[in-house]
Nucleic acid binder design. Structure first.
Lengths: 247, 247
DNA sequence: AACACAAAGTCTTCTATAAGAGTTATAAGA
DNA sequence: TCTTATAACTCTTATAGAAGACTTTGTGTT
């Protein structure tokens, strides 16, 4: 046996290139293929799967389009991770008033560990007894308080996170998830509503009581669809807007 | 000369398949290739452009991914237009409270013709003297007043629209734009903010004065990026939510 | 001997072409 | 109605050269 052959595309599942795609997806989801080193070359993968190189290529191209892997000519194909290369705005859809996309800064208000609530358990598909870490922070955009954020993380996916000092949290959390806990956020679903400012919003965002604000409820997922983060952002949209491109 | 040969891919512009793509895009934007009949077959296009069939295929595949054309095995490739085939929810991102995607019904309040305002002219890149048609309507979702919509259309793109009776307007306007005026909306950009309900919202949506609502400002564009519609939707989000998938 | 730099070689992805087998839809004919 | 033919797209494989990135080797200098 030339290699450990864990995942062969099953026969009769549809197009070959899609079977290859699924096999690769499973491998990546299982955590083989560290983000620091390239996947096996197209040739190698083709040999492993017993298909032509072009078929592997088609699978990889499709995955690259979905931002699951990133391909560098001459270097190889890598699992698409968070880092300097990646588009930082992919998961940040707030636009400053001047129409420019800017990254916010963050100040952590609190970080606590506790039992999950019922709605949280539902959103993250956790058991009612599960424990979570709750992070609360204020984010500034263009030196103006703009976002009040509540982040809920399953404790079992992020062991030891609750013990960190709140000053140790970086601005870009997804980078942290990836580097410290090998959790890679690949996609997210957001539900957006309008709400009236409550006491918390008044104190931390400086809004008037009852002022309209944008509520963004995000569930971030890994490659295989496992929800790993629930994030509720409350935004003062007097100087910014959420944007969405319908292509 | 075998055909009218308007657009040849220029030499040295980058990958061949992309030159073909651009050439086809120009053709479609110019309004050749009616939506009712297929584009020339891959073979024909390959012959026209002097490239291999696989190269044309790659260009078309890319365009199909971007929802610019739609491919039917055995029938041909068509300009992707609005109609029964097309995903009706592509341009409607509101989610009912139960999590289901439903289409709203519409009741037109008014339809008037007037001079463009300054902000409208900016958004639609019109001259300050241009005339527009303004449509105002209320949309119900699950038999509940949910959206107050203001639609601004450049008069020169939609000649004679202002003369229509307001009862003649269909629920799905993009279908009308396409069938009556040969204007195909291919993409849209939305900016979303939270606002307080004003007098209009109170009367038409039954909201309390100052209640928070979701404001969606959409600019719809044709293939070549020409803005053709400005639409401002004011939504009561007590029973629905805007959703966005970050893939 | 140690270092700097250029050339050569190798690995990888990217582009282009070609060809054959399979699937789907439409139209013509029995 | 059923069958057949045809046209079109789909899938897979194969090959070959171009282009980018990295490593090794060779050369010359210090």
């Amino acid at each position: 046996m030339p290699e450990t052959w864990v995942d062969r595309p099953r026969s009769g599942d549809g197009p070959l290139y899609r079977q290859v795609r699924e096999a690769l997806l499973r491998e990546i989801a299982q955590g083989r293929h560290p983000v620091t080193e390239p996947l096996p070359s197209e040739q190698k993968l083709a040999a492993r799967f017993g298909v032509a190189q072009g078929t592997v290529r088609r699978a990889l191209d499709e995955m690259a389009r979905e931002n699951l892997v990133i391909r560098h000519q001459g270097r190889g194909t890598f699992v698409h991770a968070h880092g300097p290369d990646r588009d930082r705005f992919h998961f940040f859809h707030l636009l400053a008033a001047d129409g420019e996309r800017r990254l916010p800064t963050s100040r952590v208000l609190s970080m606590t560990q506790r039992r999950v609530t019922q709605t949280e358990a539902l959103a993250l598909s956790l058991s009612p007894q599960a424990r979570v870490v709750e992070i609360k922070r204020v984010r500034d955009l263009m030196a103006r308080r703009a976002i009040l954020e509540l982040i809920i993380l399953p404790d079992d996916l992020f062991p030891g996170l609750g013990d960190l000092n709140k000053t140790q949290l970086p601005n870009t959390l997804y980078q942290l998830y990836q580097d410290r806990f090998a959790v890679i956020v690949h996609r997210a679903v957001e539900k957006i509503t309008a709400e009236a400012a409550g006491p918390d919003d008044v104190t931390h965002l400086g809004l008037d009581r009852g002022a309209p604000l944008l509520r963004i409820e995000r569930i971030a997922q890994t490659l295989d669809g496992t929800p790993v983060e629930l994030r509720i952002s409350r935004c003062d949209t007097t100087h910014l807007a959420y944007f969405s491109d319908l292509l």
